[in-house]
Structures are given as structure tokens and as C-alpha cells.
């Protein structure tokens, strides 16, 4: 039982990281209809910026958090304005290729701006181990699970009750009609990129606090993408839950069937789920009237 509990807790913690990045994928897809293949790289860049703030300005948790959030917003807005907006109206394939190119540039920038060494993000929090009996969990892991849950609730409320949230849903449903209703699609897109960058950045910062910061961190995006497919590419909340499911499944498979199954288990689950629900667990069925 203790073995199972430890696997579940660790699975939830890494799953929360996947879930946050997956939510970033879904926010952009829901608002722009685009899959952003640079999501993992944005996660990594924000974490590196947070590390830079912690080592040059202050290691205070709140200063680092505020700096990282502002930087993430700026990063998202700059990418949307400089790279993505000129691609508006272009074929989806070309736009997706642009995000792949962006991913390569962001990945390479780590070595140009920082270095190839692993670093630890020390904000005086997250590394302590809480023990309950023989079960151990780091405070950073507890915090990331709690953050995911809070964000899930906040995003649900945002889309449900806020005017801008409703506008985002309107653009996602039909951008031309939304435009006729006076909603600015570029503004919605910019907000989506900024929000996605912040959510992914939070994941990156928590990962760096709990584990470490290295140029290989972008690979988190590759693990989070299946989570968003599982939850539903257009389902922000579903993607977050998809991340938790992938994290738990991976850990249970790794713990009971060996390391080899760890990588495969999440994808096996996706295949099975997509065979039954091609639009993901929480995604919306795309109905076309002909």
C-alpha cells in the first residue's frame, strides 16, 4: 500500500507539471486553432528567466514569481505580435511550421544567453521533504499539485463568468461572427499567447525548483502534448486533468512493470481513449453540417 501511495503521489506531482504545460497548449488551440510546438521551449525560457532573476536581483520567492510572470506575459505577447500575427490567414501547415522553427530558436538560445550546465532554482522553498510515515514528498511537489487545482478552478471561472473569457470562447467557436459582434480577434489571440506562456512558465519554474534547470527541459513539452490530446486539444481544464492521468499512469506502469513501460503506458492509454473518444476525454465533438 505504501508503495502504491508513493507512486500515486509522485505521479500526481509530475502529472501536475505535464498538466500545466498541457493547459498552455489548449489555451492557444482553443483561441487560435493552432498547435504550438514551442510550448516546451517557452516553459524552459521562463524557468531560465526566473533563475536569472533569482541569481541577479533577488532570491525572494515573491520577487522571482512576479518577475517570472511578467516575463512570461512579455514573452507570449512578443511571440504573438512578432512571429504569429504575420501568419494570420496563412495555411495552418505553414503556421505550425513557424512554431517548430520558433522551438528550435528558443532551444538554441539557452546556450547563447545562458550555458549548458544544469542549475538549481533556489527560492528558499520547494526542496524540503515532508514525510508521512515512510512516504516522502517535496514541498515543491505539493505546491505544484495545489497550483494546478487552483488554476483549474480559476480558468473554469474565467471562461464561465468573465466577459473576456466569453469573448475568447466566441472567437474559438467562430472568429468571423465574433468579429461582427465587435470582439477583436488579435486581442484575444495576444491574450491567449500571454496566458499560455504564463501557465507553461509556472510549470517550468516548479520543475526547476523541484528538480533542476537544464537545456533538456524543453522535453517536458513532448510529455505534455499527449496529455492535452488525452484531455482534449480544445479543453483547457481537460488538458490539466489529462496531465494528471498521464503522470499517474506512467508512474504506476514504471513502478509495477518496469522502466521500459513508463514511456509506453501514457501513449497506450491515449490510443485506447482516442479509439473510443477521438476528440479526447473532455474535448468537444466537432459537428459539421453539410
Amino acid at each position: 500500500m505504501q508503495y502504491l501511495t508513493q507512486l500515486l503521489i509522485s505521479g500526481l506531482a509530475i502529472g501536475a507539471i505535464y498538466g500545466l504545460i498541457a493547459m498552455g497548449f489548449a489555451v492557444i488551440y482553443k483561441s487560435t486553432g493552432l498547435v504550438n510546438f514551442a510550448q516546451g521551449e517557452m516553459t524552459m525560457i521562463v524557468a531560465y528567466i526566473a533563475w536569472t532573476i533569482s541569481t541577479t536581483i533577488s532570491g525572494n520567492l515573491f520577487i522571482v514569481a512576479a518577475g517570472a510572470i511578467i516575463s512570461a506575459i512579455v514573452l507570449g505577447l512578443v511571440i504573438e505580435r512578432v512571429v504569429m500575427r504575420p501568419m494570420l490567414g496563412e495555411p495552418v501547415f505553414a503556421t505550425v511550421m513557424v512554431t517548430i522553427g520558433l522551438a528550435v530558436i528558443l532551444r538554441s538560445s539557452i546556450n547563447f544567453i545562458w550555458d549548458a550546465y544544469p542549475h538549481g532554482l533556489d527560492v528558499g522553498f520547494g526542496r524540503d521533504i515532508v514525510r508521512v510515515g515512510n512516504i516522502g514528498v517535496r514541498t515543491g511537489q505539493i505546491a505544484v499539485i495545489a497550483t494546478l487545482l487552483v488554476l483549474l478552478a480559476a480558468i473554469w471561472a474565467f471562461f464561465r463568468y468573465s466577459k473576456f473569457g466569453v469573448a475568447m470562447r466566441a472567437v474559438a467557436a467562430d472568429d468571423r461572427t465574433a468579429l461582427l459582434m465587435g470582439i477583436s480577434a488579435p486581442r484575444v489571440h495576444a491574450a491567449a499567447w500571454a496566458a499560455s506562456s504564463v501557465i507553461a512558465g509556472i510549470a517550468g519554474v516548479f520543475f526547476a525548483i523541484t528538480y533542476d534547470l537544464s537545456p533538456a527541459m524543453f522535453q517536458l513539452g513532448l510529455k505534455a502534448f499527449p496529455a492535452t490530446i488525452l484531455g482534449g486539444l480544445d479543453a483547457v481544464l481537460g488538458s490539466g486533468i489529462g496531465g494528471l492521468l498521464i503522470g499517474i499512469t506512467e508512474n504506476l506502469a514504471g513502478g509495477y512493470f518496469g522502466s521500459g513501460m513508463k514511456e509506453v503506458a501514457g501513449f497506450l492509454m491515449i490510443i485506447v481513449v482516442l479509439m473510443v473518444r477521438p476528440f479526447g476525454l473532455f474535448g468537444e465533438r466537432d459537428i459539421e453540417r453539410v
Partner: peptide, 15 residues
């Protein structure tokens, strides 16, 4: 035996 690029070793180390 872990896959190159793996970042979470919680289940491996528990084993």
C-alpha cells in the same frame, strides 16, 4: 533501463 531524455525517476528509484 530508462529512455534518453527521461526527467522523472520516481518510479525507478522506488523500485
Amino acid at each position: 533501463n530508462y529512455k534518453k531524455g527521461q526527467q522523472d525517476f520516481s518510479s525507478d528509484m522506488l523500485q
